[in-house]
Every structure is written in C-alpha cells, then in structure tokens.
Write a protein that binds this DNA or RNA. Structure first.
Lengths: 352, 352
DNA sequence: GGCCGGATGGGTAACGTTACCCATCCCAGG
DNA sequence: CCTGGGATGGGTAACGTTACCCATCCGGCC
C-alpha cells in the first residue's frame, strides 16, 4: 500500500498542549469523568473546538469503549428492518453512540458467523442482532464477550436481552381472519431454515398456522410451501401452491416480503387479489400500507421494537446484567388484499 | 461501566508463544509479508488455528489498516441500495475486507457530516458513499484522508472515483417513452434537495425532463412536484399533481421509491394505472420487476455499479491515485404501469 | 494550629499490532 | 578461502487513549 500523505490527525496531546493542561485532563473532559472543575472543562472544550479535535476511535478501543453499536441484519432489502433501524437510531442518537450495520446473510451459517466476528473484532460496545439463525450457544458465547440484544428469537437466555413479538398471537390473528372470511383452503409460506425448532419465529408462525387450521377442522387443507421469507421465496412458494389442485383461496405469507412475491406470482398466474386469492403478510412494514399495495398484515411496530432494543442495549452497556425480555403484542391490519372467497368463476383479469 | 469479565482475547503474543516464534514473525504471516519461510508460515498458521486467534482490529487500526470499508447510505429503506450493496459485497468478499454500513440520513447536512465523520473516526481503509448531498469540497476533504468512491454524483474530481449512470440518457428514455405513447401532460416528481445544481442526479433528471418536454413543444405542460425521492415524497408529490387542473396523464417519478408512493396516491384518488395515469420510475430496483408492481422504470444495473465501486475502492486502497469515472448507460424497461392515454372517461376502479 | 478528607490535576503504564531496523545464516562468485 | 548480498527471523518503539495511582490544595473541624 502506498502511504497516503494524510495530514496527521489532531490528537488528545495536541489539545492538551493547546489548552495548557495534561492529556489526562482532556481525557476526563471527553469522558465526562468526575474530578474536573468547570473552568477546566470550559478551557478544554474551547481547545477542542479550536483544533477541530475528534477522538480517535481505534485508540479508544484499545483501552475501553468505542461508543459503537454493531447491528447485524440478515440483509438490508427487507423494508421491515428499515422500520426497526429507524427506531434504534432515534433511541441512541442522543447517547453519543453510533450504529454500524453489517449484513449477516441470513441463511449461510458461516457467513453469519463471519459477520458476527467482524463486529467483535471491531470492538463494538454492544451488538443488536436481528433475526439470528445460529444456535443459541453461539449467541451466549457472543453475549459473554459483548452486551447483546436479540430481535425475533423465542428461546430464553439469561445472558442477553430479547425483543420480540408474540408470533403465536400474530399468526393466529392472520389465520383466524382468513378463516373468518370464509376461506377453507388457506395455505402458508414459511422459511425452510428452521432447525432450532421453537426458537425461530418462522417455526412458531408455521406451527400456529397448522394448529389453528386443525382447530377449525381444516387439517386436511393444510398446505405449506417451505421456501424463504424473501420476495423470491414468496414468489416460488406461491407458484408451487397455485399448482396444487384444488388450489388455495388464501395465502398467509410469513413475512411481508414473501407476501410481495406472492402477489406477483398470483398476478402472473392471471388471477386477482383478493378476487381469486386473498393474501396476508406479516410485519406491516411501512410500505405495505401504501394504497397501491394495501396488504393485510400483522403489525408488530418495528419502530417501537427498534427503540426498545436501543434502550436495552444502552442499559446493558451501562452495566445491567439481568436479562430482559420485551414482547410486543401484534395486531391485525386488514386492507384490500383479503376478502371473502368468491364462489363464482371469475372473468378476465382487470388491467391492474 | 461495570467491567465485564470477558475472558482475555487471544493476542498475537499468545500465538507467538504457542508457535515458539516472535510476534514479528506472526505479524508477517498475518500480513502475507515477505521474508517468511514456508515452514514458519505453516507453524504459525497451525498455532493460529489451535488458539482460534483473530486479529484485533482496533490495534491494527492504530498502526495501519483495518481491512474495513465504510459504506454511507442515505437510508436502508431504498430497495435499489440493496441491489448496490449486493454487488459490493460480492466484489469484496474474497479480499478479506469487511463492509460496514452507516445511514447518512440523506437530507440533513449535519447528520450526513456526522455519519461521514463516524467512519473516519473508525479508521476505515476506504469509503463508499452512495448519493452524497454535501458540497464537493467536503468530499474532496474526505478523499484526502481516505480512499473514496462516490456513487451518483456528476461533478468531476481528481481526488476520488465516481460511479454513476448517465442520468440524462435515462431521464430522456423515460420522458420520450411517455410522450411516444401519446401523453402530453407528463409531470415529474423530483427531490427538492438540489442546491449543488448539476452535480446531483435529481437535478439532471429534472432538467432533462424539462428539456425533452420543451423539445416536443410541451413546455406549457411542464409540471414538477418538488418533494423527495422517498415513498412519502412520491405520495405527496402525486397528490399535488393530481389536484391540478387539468391533471397530468403520466408521471415520471425520479426514483422507484417515489414511484411506489405515486402508485399509492393514484390508487387512493380512485384512479387506475395505467388506465387514467401512467407511472414510470427510475432505478429498476429488483422489486419493481415483480408482476404485481410491474413498474416501467429506467434500469441502471445496481449490482454492476456496486461491484464496480468495490473494485475501484480496492484499487485505490492498493495505491492507485488517478481518478476513475465509471458511467453506466441506462436502458428503459417497460412494464404494465405505462400505456397510451385513454381518451374516454373511465368507469369505476377495478377491485385491485 | 494541626489534621483529615474531598476535590482537582497530572504522570505513567499499559492495550495489540506493525514498521523499521538489525543480526544471522547460507550460498554464490571472485 | 574470503566477501557480499539476499533471505530469514527477531527486537523495539511507536500509534492515541484511558485506568490507576499519586500529589497538591483548600476548607472545616477538633
């Protein structure tokens, strides 16, 4: 590598010299530590402003904190994650902490591990892990190193905090809604990655779907496409479901993203929503509310979950060790993508 | 802060002791430096595996590189950015570099500056800045510190690389398409943040729209809603445009995200797409291709742009100083959201 | 007046890594 | 046989910050 002639950064030593005090004093002011007079504080702050000093993060990391929160997201394509991140950002913005995001890939355990390691190697002060797919042991190992808040896992642990919604309630709302409309052949699209049985939300949503169907005497109509919670997954899953005979009249997709794919597949098959097929999603990401999409979805307030995760993480960084579990009770938001099944054969597809 | 009893990390010293060599030797192996025998290399690697050693990034940052690339995104909600990041990730995955993402906020200059500073403070080896809104001077100042690749800016600089599409060609394709279908009252939704005139892509798209309209003798029908390239912006902008009399028969939204908002607003107004209003977007994010949305859009191959940005950044980190400008020529992808204007009054809205 | 304790400010040794320099060793060439 | 130089391995001083400890000062109390 060619050495760049970047001008040397302003360091704490420069500030100390400029303010005619010790580096220790400057450090204390920076950290709001006690044992600093008001006069000292003012003098140091003035010097900091004069020189445009900013703390050098890596050097801090060697000794103590980095004021950095690491966020692990399966991928940034999911619009629901944007809601969560908005909440998180809002919550931590005043604290001086900075969130950095890394994609964990979601389905490849090795990639997920690499992403998690990358954050630990960068000495983040805490990790916010959205929808981890790894084993609980790995989460606990990480939690031993770093304050950890996990979103969307149902296994309990005393070593990290959990933020989640009650997926059993949510899935029940969706399936009951569809059955209540008169549907009997209600299908489900789930994520095939569900090794850790009851820990993963997709497992719970799928199991609840089967339970509710069974409770309504519709066990014989249970139809699950096991793909993924992505647009591609929803698309492929729906194509598979539509090829069955008789085909379902309603689809409960395990995520809004999958529901988008489902809408596309239904449309591509020349069928209408909700005329031929009702579609319900899960997450109620902000985009699903747009009138053009108007997807019926289970709302779980991503912004609140993000804010809560931020608060819990700051608390943990601050020293709390008792585990906290924050559960949101989801609600159903009905929009135009669901309707009673139409008994009559349909005419041609409308132009939109 | 309570001191966590995290077990001490394995350091290069531990590896050296375990392998019975010097720390210098281990460091050389880690960096693939010259002056290391094959036997030494093998011995050190074995020790690294034995102990599960991972380099401590912050310590590296104190001396040299961090093997980290910082990515600045206005926000993660835009699906087109996901395409770009996929390309970037693919390109750098083999290099040992890790991308960390920070949201820059997009419209608040102070927030954008903070985000940029946050990456510099964390000693990233290079920055990939998507759609910066700041002044060019700020970019050049950053480029003096850190290798920089900028996406989506049209101002030329010798200090950083640019990846962009030819927005003039793209906007022309979209507007010509709509006019070619027979539309005369073609409106445009742009982003109000365009202080740095010709540098920002939204300025070019808007100016091109006006130019093409004028060239076709449609200057009197120029109608621009100046909101933002978000869903909210598209929604609000479209509501404003629809309230004009006579209302436009086609809308060219400056981004797909804005087009989503436009579709929602059109639908909410009880109008159909493309029956009453044609809508075209820009970016051709992968989601717009879904049959349910089927948005006509200007394609600019985000994955290719992301891959290229990754390559250019690695080259710059490797020492290149000559500036590179990589421009993609966009193409138009026509889908069902655009059609000739309907001269007859329409009946009621179809159910989807 | 002497003493004690809290408040204030500073000195210094790490933290883990790498760049730079130096010491050996070995082999080829004179 | 001697010399020179490339290849190899190691010692050490930073990098910028903070935790810990110590010195000083001042006011109040015995």
């Amino acid at each position: 590598m060619v050495t760049r002639d970047r001008q040397r950064r302003v360091t704490i030593t420069d500030v100390a010299r400029h303010a005619q005090v010790s580096t220790t004093a400057v450090s204390k002011v920076l950290r709001n530590a006690s044992g600093v007079s008001e006069a000292m504080r003012a003098k140091v702050r003035a010097a900091i402003d004069d020189l445009g000093y900013r703390p050098h993060n890596a050097a801090r990391a060697m000794r103590g904190r980095t004021f950095t929160i690491g966020v692990l997201l399966p991928h940034i394509r999911n619009p629901f994650f944007a809601d969560i991140i908005d909440g998180l950002t809002e919550e931590i913005s005043a604290s001086g902490y900075q969130a950095i995001m890394v994609q964990s890939g979601g389905r490849d355990p090795a990639a997920e591990r690499r992403a998690s390691d990358a954050l630990v190697d960068r000495q983040v002060d805490g990790v916010f892990w959205v929808a981890p797919a790894c084993a609980r042991a790995q989460l606990e190992q990480l939690a031993d190193d770093t304050p950890l808040v996990v979103l969307g896992r149902h296994d309990r642990s005393s070593r990290y905090d959990c933020v989640l919604d009650d997926d059993e309630v949510g899935a029940e709302l969706a399936v009951e809604h569809l059955i209540g409309l008169g549907h009997r052949r209600v299908a489900h699209i789930t994520d095939s990655l569900r090794s850790r049985s009851t820990a993963l939300l997709q497992t719970i949503r799928a199991a609840t779907y089967e339970r509710v169907m069974t409770e309504h005497g519709l066990a014989e109509h249970i139809a699950v496409a096991s793909t993924s919670y992505t647009e591609e997954g929803g698309y492929e899953g729906t194509r598979e479901l539509l090829s069955r005979d008789p085909r379902p009249t309603a689809i409960f997709a395990g995520s809004d993203q999958a529901a988008f794919g489902a809408l596309a597949a239904v449309h591509e098959a020349g069928l209408t929503v909700p005329g031929d097929i009702s579609v319900a999603g899960y997450d109620n990401a902000r985009v699903t509310g747009l009138a053009h999409i108007a997807l019926t979805s289970v709302d779980q307030d991503g912004a609140l979950m993000g804010r809560t995760a931020g608060r819990l993480l700051l608390e943990r960084i601050g020293g709390r060790t008792a585990a906290v579990r924050f559960s949101v009770t989801p609600t159903l938001v009905t929009r135009r993508s669901t309707a009673p099944p139409d008994p009559r054969p349909k005419g041609p597809t409308p132009d939109w």
